[in-house]
Design a protein around this nucleic acid. Structure first.
Lengths: 242, 242
DNA sequence: CGCCCGATTGAACTCACTCAAATACTGTGG
DNA sequence: CCACAGTATTTGAGTGAGTTCAATCGGGCG
C-alpha cells in the first residue's frame, strides 16, 4: 500500500526542506507508484534507458560503474531521500548502475512526466537541479579523496561521510548505524584492494576509532577520524526532497 | 565589444543543439555581459558565493579542489561551451575553483536571474539541468578512472577524452590541438605524481601513440590509446549551449 | 556434515612515490 | 649581450604504500 506524499516519513525529518501545500499536491500526482525490491536486486543498469525515476524511501544500495574487464567503481552509497535515475530521463542513457544492498522501497516517477514538471512547477524543477548539483558536488569530493588521500585517510573520510549522512536521516541510534555493505564494496568505492582495505580498517579498529561488524557501524571517535580525513566540519544545508 | 548570442561562434558548431528564435532572444537578455581574463587568473574560488555564472566562449582553464595541506585534485579541464558556477547559484557556495590557463573570454549571467529562467523559460532550465547531469556523468567517469585504472590507462583515457572534446569543438587542426596545461596539472587530474606522469607519457611517446610538447597535443594513434584506456567509442550526443 | 561467502592474516612482489640532480627555456636586470 | 633567477621537463636511484597470491577462519544454510 503506497504511502501518500502527505504522510511521507522522510518529509518530516529536519534535514529536508518544507513543502508548500501546492507542491505537496503536485508531488502526489507526480508520483506514479511504489516499488519494493529485495536485497541484491538491480534497480538501474548502466547504459539502459529506464522509463522510471526513483526516490529512495527505505533501505540502502550501491551506485557503481563497471569497466569491460570487470573492475568496478562504487560511486556512492545510496540512502533514503536519494533521487536516482534522472540522467536517464534527461539524457538518453544512464551512466551508472544501482543495486539494492538491503530490501528497499522506492518512490516511482515516470520519466515522461519530467518535462511536465519543468513546465508546470518551476520550483520543483529547481529543486531537482539542486539535487543533481549536490550529487555533482559529492562526486567531486569522492574524486578528490580517491585521487589525493592515502588509504587511511580514504577510509576515515568514507566512514565519517556515510555516518554523517545516516545521522541526518535519523538512522543512527546510540551511535550505531546499519551499514549493510561488504568490505569489497568499500574497497571498490575507494580504489583500494580488498586486502588493504581490511588491514587499514583493522588499524582504525585497534586505535579504537571505529567498530564495524555484522553490518553495524559505530564511530567511537568521530573527531579523530575527521581529522585524519582532513575533512572540514560544516553542517550540510537543508535539502529538497522529491 | 560583447558578441550577441545571435552571432555566437559556438552556436554554429554541429555539436550544439539548435536554439529557437524565442530561446535566442531570451538568452540575449539573460546574458549580462562578457568577461575577458588573462592566463593565470582565478575565475571562481571554492567556498565563495560568486554572484555570477559563466559560459566559456574562448580559451581553456582548470577546475580543481584543494585540501588544507595543499594537495590538489583537478576535476576537469575547462573548455569553450562549458557552463560553470551553477553550484554557487543553486546552493549557497561553490564546491570547486576555476583558474584560466590561457586568456579566456566568458559569457556572464547574473545568479539572481536563474530563478527567472526556471519560471519563465522551462526549456532553458531543462537544458541547464542537462548540463549539470552531463558534468555529473563526467565526474563519475573520472572517479572510475582514478579509482580503477593504472597509470598508463589513466593517461591514455585523459588524452583521448580531452582530444575528443576539443575535436567536437573544432579545436583540432591536422590532428593537433592546443593543450595549454603543465604535466603537473595532468598529474593532479589523474591522482599521479609528477615524476610518474612524466615517465608514463614518455612510454606513450616512445610507442609513437602521441606527442605533446610546447602546449601542442597530437594523438598519433587514437585507436590504440582508446583500447589501452578501455574506453568505448560512442559518439557524444548533441548538447545544449547556454 | 560439507559448502559457500565474507573476513582475516601472512608473505612476496611491484607499481608508483619521493628524493635528487640535470637540462632546457623564458623573462629580467645590469 | 650576458648573468641570473624562476619555472617546466626529464632522468636516475632507492623506497614504500598498496597489490597479488595464498591460506585460514568463522558463520549461515541446504
Amino acid at each position: 500500500m503506497p504511502v501518500a506524499c502527505q504522510d511521507c516519513p522522510l518529509r518530516m525529518l529536519p534535514c529536508f526542506d518544507d513543502l508548500s501545500e501546492d507542491e505537496l499536491q503536485f508531488m502526489t500526482q507526480f508520483k506514479s507508484g511504489e516499488l519494493d525490491v529485495a536485497a541484491g536486486t538491480p534497480i538501474l543498469v548502466e547504459g539502459s534507458k529506464s522509463p522510471q525515476i526513483f526516490t529512495v524511501l527505505r533501505g540502502m544500495g550501491l551506485r557503481y560503474k563497471t569497466l569491460e574487464d570487470g573492475r568496478r567503481q562504487v560511486t556512492n552509497f545510496v540512502m533514503p531521500g536519494d533521487f536516482i535515475g534522472l540522467q536517464a530521463a534527461i539524457q538518453s542513457e544512464i551512466g551508472y548502475s544501482v543495486d539494492a544492498s538491503t530490501d528497499m522501497t522506492l518512490c516511482v516517477f515516470r520519466r515522461s512526466d519530467i518535462w511536465k514538471l519543468f513546465r508546470m512547477h518551476p520550483s520543483r524543477a529547481f529543486d531537482m537541479t539542486w539535487l543533481v548539483c549536490s550529487e555533482e558536488h559529492f562526486l567531486g569530493e569522492a574524486l578528490t579523496t580517491v585521487g589525493q588521500r592515502s588509504a587511511l585517510e580514504r577510509i576515515a573520510w568514507a566512514m565519517v561521510t556515510v555516518h554523517d549522512r545516516a545521522s541526518q536521516l535519523g538512522l543512527v541510534h546510540n551511535g550505531v548505524m546499519n551499514f549493510p555493505f561488504r568490505q569489497q564494496d568499500l574497497a571498490d568505492a575507494l580504489g583500494l584492494s580488498l586486502v588493504h582495505t581490511n588491514k587499514t580498517l583493522a588499524k582504525l579498529r585497534e586505535r579504537d576509532l571505529l567498530t564495524w561488524s555484522d553490518g553495524m557501524l559505530s564511530l567511537r571517535d568521530r573527531e579523530s577520524l575527521r581529522q585524519i580525513a582532513q575533512l572540514d566540519d560544516t553542517m550540510p544545508p537543508k535539502r529538497p526532497l522529491l
